[in-house]
Design a protein around this nucleic acid. Sequence first.
DNA 1: CAAATAGTGTCTCTAAGACAATATCAC
DNA 2: GTGATATTGTCTTAGAGACACTATTTG
Lengths: 290, 290
Amino acid sequence: MKNSTYSIRDLYEKRIVSDEEKSFLAEYDINQYFRPSVSTDIAAFTIKNKNEENYRKEEKASLLILMVKRGTHPFKDYWALPGGFLREDESIEECAYREIVEETNIKPISIKHIGVFSEVGRDPRGRIISNAFTSIIYDGEGEIISGDDADDARWFEIILEVRDDVYYLSLKNGDILLEALLKESKNEFGIKRFEIIESEGIAFDHAAIIGSALSSLRKDVLDLEMLFDFLPEKFTLLSLQRVQETILDKELLTANFRRKVMPYVEETDEYVTGAGHRPAKLFVRKELSE
Amino acid sequence: MKNSTYSIRDLYEKRIVSDEEKSFLAEYDINQYFRPSVSTDIAAFTIKNKNEENYRKEEKASLLILMVKRGTHPFKDYWALPGGFLREDESIEECAYREIVEETNIKPISIKHIGVFSEVGRDPRGRIISNAFTSIIYDGEGEIISGDDADDARWFEIILEVRDDVYYLSLKNGDILLEALLKESKNEFGIKRFEIIESEGIAFDHAAIIGSALSSLRKDVLDLEMLFDFLPEKFTLLSLQRVQETILDKELLTANFRRKVMPYVEETDEYVTGAGHRPAKLFVRKELSE
DNA sequence: CAAATAGTGTCTCTAAGACAATATCAC
DNA sequence: GTGATATTGTCTTAGAGACACTATTTG
């Protein structure tokens, strides 16, 4: 693990610290204020193609989220987002990153902090403040999974229906079906929140975290930049389009999508053949100068 | 203070908690994991007109941020964002809201969580995790200020110059000049962060928090919806335009701005007179059905 | 009347969306 | 050839930006 981004310590060294301040710090009692536990929970997403009946028809894809089955109380045997407690020597981001790597054995390209869940009573063990992250994972071999931490970790297919501000969320893995009913609203501080109306089989308030993560993902994916995280280095334009379509749950016109992404990609001289139709050119992501 | 948005406790009551889980919880030791201190820091913004020389010329406006002078170590006599430690019986949002009200005696229309600052070593007192918020405050009478908490609280004029990804930030109040040099970059996790290159007179890593807050504000203000928070109930379209211009530090064409905001506002039959030119109609915000 | 803002109309350019038409491969 | 995706081109429409022009008030 590398050091943090910037070292605030360098700044402190420049500052002249008086003897008075030094003795203040020496006697400072961190226990005088209330201290909660702090954790991170990560909504890790990937996209997987479904197999189709027709040999030359393009596969449909689904959006998957990683969930782990809890082996201990509370919410034993419920499914939860992967995550864990903050350690003394790491930042929130380092904690989130570490937890994903422990859980999936894969180093994600990026993580994104999407909110803090700190309601009093959200965890029956006491005051635990959760920092929610999203992370995109390219599951090339479909082999990820099963870290050292949890009893059971699996990818769940996300089926989401949004009507008005109500989210009907289903997570499916084989026979396992988790469901939640969420309502997006603003609280008294004008902050957008997901209220849990129903939550079946999902631990804590994690259904609300998943709602926030999906909402954030759908907003971010309009930027195009993040689509690449779901795919290998070389990809076809249709596979890129399928990523956005899967996340937005909306079909797009190839001609228009192609025109829109052109500034972000560079063509190679390789092609995908053997698909029973005109071969598609492989593209790579273009490094933008900004 | 109202209760939290949704009660996760209702969900817990529906869940059947086994005797085994009850005894687990009874014996659960919250001290087994490391617990940091948790605080909130708020970048509270307002807009104030400057007085101009010419009687009929429209006043220019500046964007102001609230800072408090620290009365205790560490960083005694430095200027910091208002904020404070999380209490046992409140959420992060409630804490931020409470701190603003204590500091300004004004209830802000909305607050927004913009990030978590958790780098090891960011506070010489020990491990303190800061939740950063922005808040818009309408300073109708210019009377706010001076809560019960800080030695000295003042509005500072923000002068910001952005070149490439470098932020040249100056905060001015009379003879007091605070300066910082920030660089926006992505850390190893792909998360955007402000690195502090120089920070004169600003406590802790608060210069970086201000950078994030300004960056977030500039993005949000494109939405138009939040412009209204800076103004009284009735306003002229030019004053609304000045808000966006001040935040973006960019002049706009009245004709185009007028067309763009029309769906968001409703006209009244009142006018502003006595300004030495054609009187401006007063508008109110239109409640959108969404 | 001069100076300043209030407010309207219109032209251009760009980007998004819809859709038609052609290209190429594997069975 | 058939059926599928690959790729290009074009038309329409909506919105942003630039700018010209008229309206109205007060010293």
